[in-house]
């Protein structure tokens, strides 16, 4: 198993309170990992550390062997462009860009040619089943539609790893299931690893592996229903 992303001995404190305590976790290429736990257990903090959006107080996070905390800010930004995709609970689509433009945004950041950008955007719009809504503004989309666009945007640059923070937390059951199917299908197709933060047991089942966090520690690790680990 080739390790893509690895956190070793990471501790994170907010003031005197340790949110994560000497935690170890590794994600293989193409693997889907669920971080399960109650609110405030440190799931999102761990996700931010894995994505290089925050730095650990102790320990290290390595992406393909390179420590994120040693990277300069421009290098980190570069890594985020090329290697990461992110899906948020509240979608965070840019309200002044329409659905297709939101998908195109990371590709513009990467400097792709317009033709390539359009092809890729068209492909993703079709993949998430929103061809008829491609020109809609975010304010005109439903929650489920917004999250599907957000998933398409996160995968646009064919990242090595997708970080999903409660991707169904703000959706009704049907929309949530549709988004989970989409995440599983597309990451499978693209060979993208995924770390998903959730407090939903049901959502976690699409992953290969599930880690349960309580008070900043991993108390349980088990296999999910996402099929064979790559």
């Amino acid at each position: 198993m080739a390790v893509l992303l690895e956190a070793r001995g990471v501790t994170k404190r907010y003031g005197s309170r340790a949110v994560l305590q000497s935690l170890d976790v590794a994600i293989a290429k193409g693997e889907r990992l669920a971080l399960l736990g109650p609110s405030g257990c440190g799931k999102t903090t761990l996700l931010n550390l894995l994505g290089g959006l925050d730095l650990p107080d102790e320990g290290t996070v390595r992406l393909e062997g390179e420590a994120l905390e040693a990277m300069t800010a421009p290098r980190l930004a570069e890594v985020r462009r090329r290697t990461y995709g992110t899906v948020f609970q509240f979608f965070h689509l840019i309200p002044t860009l329409d659905a297709r433009e939101n998908i195109e945004l990371p590709l513009h950041l990467l400097g792709w040619t317009p033709a390539r950008i359009q092809d890729r955007a068209r492909e993703l719009v079709a993949a998430v089943g929103l061809e008829s809504r491609a020109a809609a503004w975010p304010s005109e989309l439903s929650g489920g539609e917004m999250q599907r666009i957000a998933v398409a945007r996160a995968l646009a640059a064919r990242p090595a790893i997708l970080l999903a923070d409660e991707p169904t937390g703000n959706l009704d059951r049907a929309s949530g299931e549709a988004v989970l199917d989409l995440l599983a299908r597309l990451t499978e197709q693209e060979g993208t690893a995924m770390v998903m933060v959730t407090h939903s047991e049901a959502a976690a089942t699409i992953c290969h592996r599930i880690l349960r966090l309580v008070d900043g520690r991993i108390i349980e690790g088990r296999t999910g229903e996402g099929g064979d680990r790559p």
Binding site: R80, R81, H92, I94
Partner: peptide, 16 residues
């Protein structure tokens, strides 16, 4: 700030 955060997660640099 939500947009800004999104841009950062998408890899936009601070200067951009």
């Amino acid at each position: 700030r939500g947009d800004i955060w999104t841009l950062r997660t998408l890899g936009a640099k601070e200067g951009e």
